Amino acid sequence: MPYQAKTDWKYNDPVTEVDVNRWEQGIKDAHAAMDNFVLRLASLETRVKTLEDAVLNDFKNNIFNMSFQTLDGVLVSRGWHDVANGRLVVK
């Protein structure tokens, strides 16, 4: 539900629980929207970095991006797992 601002406050208007609940819901909704924005921004940063790396390394085909936070289901035969950066380094 979009936030409904009250912009016609008058001096000595009573503040009710309805007003406070509306404020709190607006704050909650704004934080949820910001959390979603942060996740989407992180995803876009990853995509841009992947494309930059591909272009700068002249690797224009078979571009893919996977997170290797864990190696569940992955057998590493060459290279190593860079845990800090969540990536698999292949040599």
Rank of each mutant, 00 (worst) to 15 (best):
W23N: 00
V15E: 04
F68C: 04
F59K: 12
D29W: 01
H31S: 03
A54N: 04
H81P: 01
W9H: 00
I27N: 02
D82I: 08
Q25Y: 06
I63G: 07
D72S: 09
I63V: 15
E52F: 13
K6L: 01
A33T: 10
K6I: 02
V76W: 03
K91N: 05
D35W: 04
S43L: 12
T7M: 07
T16L: 08
L71P: 01
N61G: 09
L71I: 13
D19V: 00
P2A: 06
W23H: 01
L75N: 11
A32M: 06
W9G: 03
A84C: 00
Q69N: 09
M66H: 15
S67A: 07
D19L: 03
V55K: 10
M34Q: 13
V15D: 04
W80K: 14
Y3V: 03
N85Q: 11
L75G: 00
K28G: 00
L41S: 06
N85S: 09
R40W: 07
H31D: 04
V83W: 03
V76Q: 03
Q25H: 05
V74K: 02
A33K: 12
D82H: 09
E52Q: 15
H81C: 07
T46K: 12
E24K: 11
T50F: 07
A54Y: 07
K49P: 02
T70M: 00
V90K: 09
M66I: 05
L71E: 00
H81G: 06
D82A: 11
N62D: 15
P14G: 06
N65F: 14
Y11L: 13
W23T: 01
S67I: 01
N85R: 10
I63Q: 15
N61W: 09
T46Q: 09
T7E: 13
V89L: 10
T50I: 09
D58R: 08
G73Y: 10
R40F: 05
L88M: 04
R47P: 02
W9V: 02
F64G: 12
P2K: 02
D53I: 04
R47D: 13
D53A: 11
T46G: 07
P14E: 14
L39M: 14
S77E: 15
K6H: 01
S67R: 05
E24Q: 14
Y11R: 10
F68A: 06
D82K: 10
I27C: 04
Q25A: 14
K6R: 06
L71Y: 00
P14S: 10
M34W: 12
F64P: 00
T46Y: 05
R78T: 11
D82C: 08
Q69R: 05
K49F: 11
N21Y: 06
V38M: 06
S43M: 11
L39T: 14
V48P: 01
R47A: 14
V18F: 06
M1V: 03
E52D: 13
E17G: 12
F37D: 02
V74S: 01
K10H: 07
